[in-house]
Design a protein around this nucleic acid. Structure first.
Lengths: 229, 229
DNA sequence: CGATATTTTGACCCGGCTCAACCCAAGTGG
DNA sequence: CCACTTGGGTTGAGCCGGGTCAAAATATCG
């Protein structure tokens, strides 16, 4: 969105963009807050999360570089957006962005596309939350990270692939609807079965992609379904 | 969408529309299938559901009259759409609809709006699936039905309201990520606590809205958040 | 290094699942 | 008209996956 090949009409947008950085744990958008800006991630990982009165928390979106944050036509967000890693964002003022939106058809089409992607991801995620076991949930999560890791180096997901884990155990638990203890136990479970190797707490190596994919419920070569937008 | 105040440009769309009915349990759209039509519900209830290899099933969308089914720009659906009650639909051919879409800005804007609504609903639903207890899940579901029932008669959700339940216990279980036994037990649990009265299996009367709303985690008067698009 | 935060591991418990019986209303056919 | 079937729904008994609580191990960082 920010790093766009910009037709002349987008030049105004181009001019009004600005940059901002966020530290891990810092709120980018707060639930119920009237957000004045929206934009896309240049670097880092952002989680969208909803919280119940008593503090129970569920992640409802996980965004990576190039993903868009903020909803046109919707001034207040029904969730928090918080930086998971150090984040650099490219932002626009809402008013200017929306003015541009009503004048540029392609921009609107692109937004519809992105929203449909997010909706598909959300529904895949619902299946995970409602029906998968802890082991299946973690395997699904690992497949998501593996696909990203391999895509970044123009490779395929295969044994030996080193997969960085940009989330803490707590964030993973909030992603999967589990506790951090269960996440930890499932990691060691997969390791003891020889499906993965753990190199530190923030990275793993795939040693049996087939087994992990099967656990995740991936239909095979359908490795494209991604829970992230 | 079908019952639209149609600016002249929509007249072509108007001409190509046609009607079709579906029996309960019948597929309207099948996962992976290339869907040639899309349109909106005139009457009845439709569930969108995803299924794992071994048959575990999760509902990912619940649609009522006036709701739109089918995704512009997306020929194949990642879920099944099945009729829960007898359903009457108003349909368009995909090709004609998309042609119209590229010529009518308002239509596209409206689709973006609807998709954003569905996304919000999906994320609220994720919170339910990932973090709520069985009792809280059922209470949330009852509040959704109650809001619909009261809206249809231009009233508010209050004690004494009779709420029709258009789903079987099985469909409710698939909605909430539970088994039918647990759904049944939670119904009797709420009844024994005096929160609801059960009149047959397909209808209930609210006797303590406050208690049900509290269980559902409704912030009060925020009764507008709806898990359905 | 010590100090603090994160992660892992262990022991135990409980909410929701499984399996099975039973209930009830609505057909269906003799 | 009644026996039988069929499909939802409810209830009970028992179990187990994942939660809770607590402690040990490991990272991270001044």
């Amino acid at each position: 969105m920010c790093s766009y090949s910009t037709p002349s009409e987008l030049e105004v947008l181009e001019k009004t963009k600005f940059y901002q950085t966020f530290d891990p744990g810092q709120d980018i958008v707060s639930e119920g807050e009237n957000t004045a800006t929206l934009g896309s991630i240049i670097d880092g990982v952002v989680a969208l999360q909803k919280t119940l009165e008593d503090g129970r928390r569920q992640m409802v979106g996980l965004l990576f570089p190039s993903d868009f944050i903020g909803r046109p036509l919707r001034p207040v967000a029904p969730y928090d957006a918080v930086a998971v890693t150090p984040v650099r964002m490219c932002l626009f003022h809402r008013t200017k962005f929306e003015a541009m939106l009503s004048q540029n058809v392609y921009l609107e089409r692109r937004l519809l596309e992105m929203t449909l992607n997010e909706l598909d991801a959300a529904r895949e995620w619902m299946l995970l939350l409602g029906r998968k076991t802890a082991a299946e949930k973690l395997a699904s999560f690992i497949m998501i990270l593996a696909r990203r890791a391999s895509a970044l180096q123009n490779a395929t997901v295969k044994n030996g692939l080193e997969v960085p884990i940009p989330l803490t155990r707590e964030a993973i638990a909030e992603f999967l609807g589990l506790t951090i203890e269960t996440v930890s136990r499932q990691f060691t479970g997969l390791r003891k079965q020889g499906f993965i190797e753990l190199s530190g707490t923030r990275s793993l190596v795939l040693t049996d992609v087939g087994a992990v994919a099967a656990l995740a419920g991936v239909v095979q070569e359908d490795a494209l379904t991604d829970l992230t937008a």
